[in-house]
């Protein structure tokens, strides 16, 4: 074994150690800064509306979906696969997937499991409205409620859209005082949601 080979082997081992640190260890921040691209999920700008940006989510093929969000909103990939965390002035939101057990329907699941769960964890929860609608041909259930965050009151619209495998959840909250100005955007986001699993 000559010197060059020993040097290459040492270099390779060091590179792998560095790679492990960058991938999973304390240097992982470096990777997310250099290659951070929350809009890696961003596929194309909507031709339909210049104000909206099109996010095409891809995780499990059955659950591919497309959601359009206003360009100026901050969108990041969420912790759970297939989810986005959204923040915007005077509000926040979440788009995610929800596994509905096979032995129940989405509506029953929302009313018997989801809403009671939210009541428990949401301070000042007060239901305002519940309705069944169609979103691009899919059954959807829209639950509106009021909640308290700190000293502020928020109004939240949560849309549950049934899908082939999982259901999609679009949760959008805005400060109660500003809710009127966001309501139209919220409805447009929900109505533009589309499954892309064909």
């Amino acid at each position: 074994m000559n010197r060059k080979v020993i040097f290459i082997l040492i270099l390779t081992v060091l590179s792998i150690i560095l790679l492990t640190l960058i991938s999973f260890g304390p240097l992982s921040n470096l990777r997310s800064q250099t290659s951070f691209n929350p809009e890696s999920l961003l596929k194309r700008t909507s031709p339909i509306n210049d104000l909206l940006t099109d996010y095409l989510n891809k995780d499990v093929r059955e659950n591919y979906y497309e959601v359009m969000l206003p360009k100026e909103w901050l969108v990041k990939a969420g912790d759970k696969p297939g989810s986005y965390n959204i923040s915007f002035p005077s509000g926040y939101g979440l788009v995610s997937l929800m596994d509905v057990p096979d032995n129940t329907t989405l509506e029953l699941f929302i009313l018997s499991q989801e809403e009671p769960r939210m009541k428990k964890i949401t301070p000042g929860y007060q239901r305002l409205d519940y309705q069944k609608v169609k979103v691009n041909g899919n059954d959807a259930y829209i639950l509106s409620f009021e909640e308290k965050r700190g000293n502020k009151d928020y109004l939240t619209i949560t849309a549950y859209i049934s899908g082939a495998d999982n259901a999609a959840v679009i949760k959008l909250s805005a400060n109660k005082d500003d809710f009127k100005s966001f309501e139209q955007s919220f409805n447009r986001i929900i109505n533009n949601f589309n499954w892309r699993n064909q």
Partner: peptide, 26 residues
Amino acid sequence: VPDSQTQINFFVSWFFIIIGVGSLLV
């Protein structure tokens, strides 16, 4: 790459490249 697997893809792809180049040079 699925959204939830970008980290593991980053590691595995670079691991293959480093090991491949290393063994090629050796």
